[in-house]
Design a protein around this nucleic acid. Sequence first.
RNA 1: GCCCGCUUAGCUCAGUGGUAGAGCACACGCUUCACACGCGUGGGGUCAAUGGUUCAAGUCCAUUAGCGGGCACCA
Length: 691
Amino acid sequence: MIVATTRPETMLGDTAVAVNPDDERYRDLIGATLQLPLTAREIPVIADEFVDPAFGTGAVKVTPAHDPNDYAMGERHGLPQVVVIDKHARMTNEAGKDFVGLDRYEARAKVVERFDALDLLEKVVDYEFAISRCDRCRTVVEPLVSTQWFCRMTEMAERALEAGNKQHEPEFVPQNPWTKVYTDWLENIHDWCISRQLWWGHRIPAWYTEDGKVIVTRSEEEARAKAGCGDAQLTQDDDVLDTWFSSGLWCFSTLGWPDETDDLKTFYPTSVLVTGRDIIFFWVARMTMLSLKFMDEIPFCEVAITGIILDKHGQKMSKMKGNTVDPLAVFDKYGVDATRITLAAASAGTDVRWRDDQVESYRNFANKIWNAARFCLMNAEGARIGARVEGASETWALHDRWIVSRFNRAAEEINAALEKRQFHEAVYSLYHFFWDDFCDWYIELVKADVTNVEASPARDAARSRLLTMLEQSLRLLHPLMPFITEELWQRLASLAGEGGREFLHPAYREMNPTVMLAAYPQVRAELIDERAESEMNAVIELISRVRSIRSEMNVKPGEAVRVLVSAPDARTREVFATSIDQIKRIARASEVTISESLEVVPRGSARAALGAGAEAIVPLEGLIDFEREQGRLGRELEKVEAEAARGEAQLANSQFRERAPAEKVEELGKRVDDLVSRAQAIRRMLEALRG
RNA sequence: GCCCGCUUAGCUCAGUGGUAGAGCACACGCUUCACACGCGUGGGGUCAAUGGUUCAAGUCCAUUAGCGGGCACCA
C-alpha cells in the first residue's frame, strides 16, 4: 500500500494504516495485515470515517503516539502507542537499533534513504503546510503522547449555559457578537488540560506513592494521611496548574475564599468585568464556570468588552515583535490623565491603533483645563461657590442661562453614555462642552465682568457663577481625568460651604472633602433652556460672522471696526442689545448699532446674512477688497442656494409631504424659508457691491 | 473550509433613516492682560462598488471586492 507523509521518521511508530470504509479501492484490504518496512512489526488496515478518500492516496499511516488525530483513531480502534521520538526530539529504542539516538531530522533523511534503497519510495514532492512552532523559541513542535491532568468540563459548561439562558448572566456589552462567541465555546466545550510543564506556578496537588498510586489532596500531610503510610516516600507531580486555572478563581479567591470573609460577603458577586475579547474563553468563561462550581453564582452580571490596543500599523502588540508601548513612558511624556482619557475615548469594543499624537491632544486638553482654572482662580476674590449661588437665576445674564443649559445637556449625555458603557461618547461631550462652550465662549463672555478690579456685588456674582460652573465641570470630568480634577477641586473647595463638604454625600460628611466623594452631576431638566440656547446661538453667529469678515478682509487684529446690525424681529434686536458689551468685546467692535432695517448701507461695507432675516454690516471704508468680498459672498450664496434647492425639491415631492412625519416636514419648511431669505439677502448684497 | 468585524477628509477615527463630523495634519493672520500644549479664520468628502427597501440611505437588506480577526483542518 502506498501512503503519504510529511514526517517519514514517524512511520517507525505506525501501528495501523487507515482507509475510509466506503473507499472502493481499499475495501477488500480492510482487516488485512501489513508488514511495516524497516521494522519487524505487522500492522492492520483499519477503516475509519476520519480518512478523506480524496486526499493523498486515500490511505493514511496511523501514529497514535505522535499525532493528535492518529491518537484519536488509535483510541477508537484500540491501537498500541509506540513512542519513537523522545522529549529531546531524539529517536527512542522503539525506533529500532539503526535509528536510536538520531535527531528527528537525521532519522527523517535516513528513513527516506532506506526506502529508496529498498525500492519502496514512490516519490518525493515539495509540499507546503502549516507547521506548529514554539511561541518563544520557534522550534518545530512534535506531538508526543504523554500523561497530563485534565479537568472535566461538561457539567460546569452546562451550568454556565443554563445561567446564560435563564438569568441572562453574564450580560455582554456590547451584546453582539460576544454573547454568541461565549456560548458557542461553552457548547463545544473540551476537557481542559490543566498541566503545564513550567517551573513557576502552583504545583499540581497530586502525590505518587512508590508503588505508583496517585493521591490528590490539598496538602502533602493530607496525602500522607490518606495514603495510610505515615513516613512513606511521596513524590509530588512536577507539573504546575495552567495560569488560567487560578485566574478562574480570581473573583472570589481575591476576596478571601474559601474563608467566609466580610469582603466576600460584601463584594461577591461583583458587578462589572471589563476585559478584552481575546480572553473571553481563557478567563471570562472559566470564571463563570468556576464561580458556579464553588460559589453557586455567576461572579458578575455584566462583562464590558473593550477594544484591544494595537500598534500604529494595526498589529497586535507583543514583546516578541517589539512593538509594545511602555505605559510608564507614556505617563511621563503626556501624563496619566491624558493617557486615561485617551483610552476612554476609544470607541467601545473597537480596536485602537495607538498613536502618540492622540494622547498629545488630550495632554493639550489637560493643559487647557489647567489654564482655564488658573484664570478662574486668579479672579476668585469675593466669589463663593455651591448651592447658595445657584439660586438666583433671575439675575443671570443670557450667557449664564446658556452655559447652565449647555452644562445640563452635557451632564445628561455623559451620564447616559457612561450607563451604556459608551465611554467615547462621554469623552466627546466633555471635551466639547469644556473647551468649546466653557472656555471659548463662556469665559470670553464673562471676562470683562470678572476681571473688573473694582469689587462690586455684580462682579462677585459673575465670579461666583464662573467658579461654580468650573466646580461642577471638574466633578463631571473627574472619572476620566482624576488627578488634575482633584488638584484643582481642592483649590476651589475653600470657596464653598464647609470647605467643600457641602458637595459630599451625607454618608461621607465626616471625611475630608475630595472630588472623589462629591456627588456626580446629574441633569436638572428645568435648567435646560432652549430659548437661551437659540438666543445665544444668534449672538454667537453674529460674532462669528464679524470675525470671519475681519479675517477675510485682512483687518488687523488690533483694529476695531464698526458693526451695523439690522434685525426686523424685535426679540432678536433685544437679544443683541442685551449682549452688546460682549459682542463689542469679542468681535473687537468700537461700536455696534442695532436697528430694524438699514436704508443706507455705507459704501465699501462687508456684509453677512444672519438668521431670522438679520444682517451684519461692517463698514470698511477704503479697506474693502471688492474682489475678496465678492468671492466670499459668492461662495456663501452657492452653499446656501444649493442647500435651499435640495430642501425645496424635497418639499415639492408630494410623497414626502404625505408620508414623512408632519414634524419633519415643518422643520424642513422652516429651514428652507431661512435659507431662501438668506440667499435673497446675499444676492442684494452682491448687487449693492457691484452697483 | 466555517463564523465575525471593518472599509467615511491627507492620517487616525466618531456618526442614533431626515443639514456629513472630531482630533491631528494643511493654509492665512495673531507677543488680544488663563492658555503658542494657545487664539481667530479658512480649504479639504463619489461615506469601497453594485443592486434593493424607503417619501428619504453613510445609516436597513443582498451581492461583490479589499483588509483584519476567531475557530476548524493541514496524512
